[in-house]
Design a protein around this nucleic acid. Structure first.
Lengths: 207, 207
DNA sequence: GTTTATTTGTACGAACAATTT
DNA sequence: AAAATTGTTCGTACAAATAAA
């Protein structure tokens, strides 16, 4: 927990998130206070607070003065989020925060019954890196990624392997791929390719 | 700038955002450094930094060590964002961060050609407060809000008056209202009401 | 009802590393 | 090599809100 890469506040955030996902802290229950966290992890209040604030921004936890920090009591899972990635030129390199927006968008998706996002200006390597984190960390049950052909199969493969429920495909192969893997959704997904922005209707899941 | 309400870092953020929106800082240009901001506004580095970091999270600015903080060079405006608000019981009160998710979602919308969001668990007063801020601060050209009937006309009226381009309506009156105000969009919007999650196709606007 | 302790919210200052010019 | 800027981490202080004694 100490030596691994990245800033401490990120590793702390990651660890807390993992513990929540494992069920160590259930929705509605209180997390350790800032002071407790400082002792447990050997960090300063600043660092502990920053990790918490990140999770607040993502909607994972809620804080109240005088009470503490608790796991968000109601989490609605988007059954599937659809990302349509059309990247043009090197726009991505000039706007690296773009993928961060996707990530926060997917965070919002956990409060939605349905989710649909479209991004432009996204490059391959950075995109896959972010999406990989996304699939590992977020509360979505699955992420369907439709990318431009030149993003490349190998990158999308990496993403698929990170977590079950993640399906990816290049634009031209989309309907074919899904005909193989999920035959029952064929009709719906084929019509989806005619959307400029994909949208996958989903049933809502209640807690 | 000093006496008004709210935390200083929020007021600073708001002021910087206003100056960017007014064109005082153009896309790609550098904002004042942290030190300069401290002197100009009479705040500590911590506060100046926090205001900047908020704007980074929203995708308004980008920072690079050794260079500075610049206005995001490419901003794609969503011509219209569609918010469908169906609130159930008092779920909102238990999850106040929900509307914050909408706000961040709309932030993402500025990077999208199209945008579609759906929220559950949203109450009236808090929702309108957030949405008002949203209409005032964000880069979307318009926000179409479809709300449950019991959110009330008066609240939505408040929102409409904050900024041109914002259109709101209760669910049952939706097609009727838009038949009056925007006759050319009638067909599109009427079919939209049959979606569980609204989606308004839009042309992309390039800088 | 008051007081006290705990917890988070805001704000300040400082130090050092990493990056860029 | 040096200066400027942001990134991370530390520590502190006080205010505000809450809960318990």
């Amino acid at each position: 927990m100490k030596q691994s890469g990245g800033p401490m506040y990120q590793r702390l955030r990651q660890d807390l998130l993992a513990r929540i996902r494992r069920g160590e802290f259930t929705p509605g229950s209180l997390l350790p206070s800032e002071n407790q966290l400082c002792k447990q992890y050997g960090v300063s209040v600043t660092t502990a607070r920053r990790a918490f604030l990140e999770l607040v921004k993502e909607g994972v936890v809620q804080r109240k003065a005088g009470v503490g920090t608790m796991v968000a009591p109601i989490v609605r899972h988007a059954r599937l989020s659809f990302l349509s990635i059309d990247y043009e030129g090197d726009a991505w390199r000039r706007t690296p925060s773009a993928m961060g927006e996707i990530v926060s968008g997917i965070g919002a998706a956990s409060w939605q019954r349905d989710a649909s996002f479209s991004m432009t200006g996204v490059g391959s390597d950075e995109a896959v890196g972010y999406l990989r984190r996304l699939a590992e960390e977020r509360t979505v049950d699955g992420v369907l990624i439709r990318a431009a052909d030149d993003i490349g199969e190998k990158h999308l493969k990496v993403l698929e392997n990170t977590r079950p429920g993640v399906r990816s495909t290049t634009a031209s192969l989309m309907s074919a791929r899904f005909r193989e893997t999920r035959p029952r959704r064929r009709a719906r997904l084929r019509s989806l390719t005619s959307y400029r922005v994909g949208h996958v209707p989903m049933q809502s899941t209640r807690p």
